[in-house]
């Protein structure tokens, strides 16, 4: 059942999108921690989440893709 869920979540994003986000997270520094909700994550845990397509992985993919869209739209420089 867990594997089925992972496969379904992974189908939410294209392989290109997932790989893109994976590479963006891959270059995060090793000695930092990110607080997300009730948990803290290091880089390896985020990468694992993206690979597995679990909740936190998908959240990171959503965030990063959203960011890239905003960047392309020039949103960073709007008031």
């Amino acid at each position: 059942m867990k594997n089925k869920k992972v496969v379904k979540n992974n189908q939410k994003y294209s392989k290109v999108a997932r790989d893109l986000v994976y590479e963006r997270i891959f270059i995060l520094p090793n000695d930092y921690t990110l607080s997300i909700g009730a948990d803290e994550y290091d880089k390896e845990e985020l990468l694992k989440g993206i690979k597995e397509g679990n909740e936190i992985g998908n959240e990171i993919i959503d965030l990063q893709l959203d960011y890239l869209r905003d960047m392309a739209a020039g949103a960073f420089y709007n008031e």
């Binding site: 963006r24 270059i27 995060l28 520094p29 930092y32 990110l34 965030l63 990063q64 959203d66 960011y67 905003d70 960073f76 420089y77």
Partner: peptide
């Protein structure tokens, strides 16, 4: 802070964590 984090004055680490601050802002 976000503009700083994406600028050439930011550290590499600051640059990488900018998307998360942007999410808080939004």
């Amino acid at each position: 802070n976000h503009l700083h984090m994406i600028s050439s004055n930011a550290s590499f680490e600051e640059n990488q964590y900018a998307p998360f601050l942007w999410s808080n802002l939004k």
